[in-house]
Computed example of a mutant assay.
Amino acid sequence: MGIPGNLIADFYLHAGSLAPNSYQSTIKALSFVERLPRVQKIANIGCGTGLQTVILYEATHQPITAIDFIPEYIQSVEHELKRQNLDRYIHPVLASPDNLPFMNEEYDIIWSEYQASKIGFNYALNEWNKFIKKDGYIVICAYCWLTDNPPTAIIDFWRKNENEIAPVTSRIEQLRKTGFLPVSYFVMPDECWWNHYCPLEDGFESFLKKYPDDPFAQQLIQNIDKEIDLYEKFGKHYGYAFFIGRKTDC
């Protein structure tokens, strides 16, 4: 029996970090979108706690639909948007990433920093393509192998991990095969991983105090601690990368 989803959601909600990230990386990825002033509508799929969603709005000043399938995340985003007086511009929606309430060719950009490696990179590209206008963009993150022969320990970890991983070249080829012209990609720097891991580590103690006798809570913390340890030892073999593609099919 696995760790209950509500327990995982509670931990990451309060930790506030769902994947490697940085303000600079989000802005860098956005810089590859040509004719950005003409963009009128953006969807952020897997918005989590809304950090990147707010960055996107502040950089584009265009309406954003923020999608997540976890109710607690959507509630958190709604609260934060009201606090910042941004609720007129960013619209949180509770929906599954594989059953989106969008119309065909509705969006200029579909952005996803957290979701693709969970539901499958290739699946996400195929499923979301139809919602993007011709010559619109997909900006999407995924875990990638950076070396040809990673150690067995890290291969075993990723086989058991809920996120998929593949070589960068494979990701680029998947973009092409699903109707996107690969515009650019870049691997996030090491600091992005610590932007992710440090808040998680900071949340260990309070989480265990909240669930003092819960073996699943203890297992979750142990799993994350092991993940951090493996990154310290083997991080040069894998990374988290942005991929930017422009839709070329009709």
Rank of each mutant, 00 (worst) to 15 (best):
Y197H: 01
G2N: 15
F102A: 09
K41P: 00
E164S: 11
G203L: 01
I55P: 01
N6R: 10
N122P: 02
E80K: 15
R38I: 03
D10K: 12
E78A: 08
Y123F: 15
I64V: 10
E162I: 15
L56M: 00
K226T: 15
G239V: 11
F157S: 09
I172P: 07
N6L: 07
L30Q: 10
I119R: 05
A9C: 03
E58W: 01
G16A: 07
P97E: 03
S22C: 00
M1E: 13
D249G: 06
C198A: 11
Y238H: 01
R246M: 12
N163R: 15
Q40V: 07
Q222G: 10
P151W: 06
D229T: 11
T169M: 14
S184G: 00
F180Y: 14
I3E: 07
D108G: 04
D87I: 02
L125E: 09
H237Y: 14
T49K: 01
I155V: 15
D249E: 13
D214C: 13
A217I: 01
P92R: 02
N149P: 04
C141R: 03
Y185E: 06
I172D: 01
I221Q: 07
I74E: 05
F204V: 05
F69E: 09
H61G: 08
P92M: 06
E127Y: 14
Q52P: 10
L146F: 05
A116M: 04
Y197L: 02
I55H: 03
P71T: 01
K41G: 03
F186E: 05
K226Y: 12
L13K: 08
Y197C: 02
L220W: 00
A116D: 02
F216W: 14
